[in-house]
């Protein structure tokens, strides 16, 4: 049970840090930290065989999203 609290506190800290940060490139590592913490919390919340699949789906989706934003941000600045 204590692991769930630690993961939730890490998620809140990462979100506060990502919201305060001004630079967009430095925001993205903290968003990744929050994604890892939420994926861990999904596994720890419920004892069900499908929760592993749900955590894997969330991990794949959110990592794809963050990498797409980072790729577009870097490419847009270089071309523009």
């Amino acid at each position: 049970m204590i692991a769930l609290y630690i993961v939730a506190v890490i998620a809140v800290f990462a979100v506060c840090r990502a919201s305060i940060e001004k630079n967009t490139g430095r925001k993205l590592p903290y968003v990744n930290v929050m994604n890892f913490a939420i994926a861990g919390a999904i596994v720890l919340l419920l004892d069900h065989p499908l929760s592993l699949v749900a955590a894997a789906a969330y991990f794949v989706g959110s990592t794809l999203e963050a990498n797409a934003i980072a790729s577009t941000y870097a490419g847009g600045v270089r071309r523009g």
């Binding site: 990502a18 993205l28 968003v31 929050m34 994604n35 939420i38 919390a41 919340l45 999203e65």
Partner: peptide
């Protein structure tokens, strides 16, 4: 867009 992703991360649990 990053902030919308953060909101989604808070809703999934």
């Amino acid at each position: 867009l990053i902030a919308v992703g953060i909101t989604f991360g808070g809703i999934v649990p």
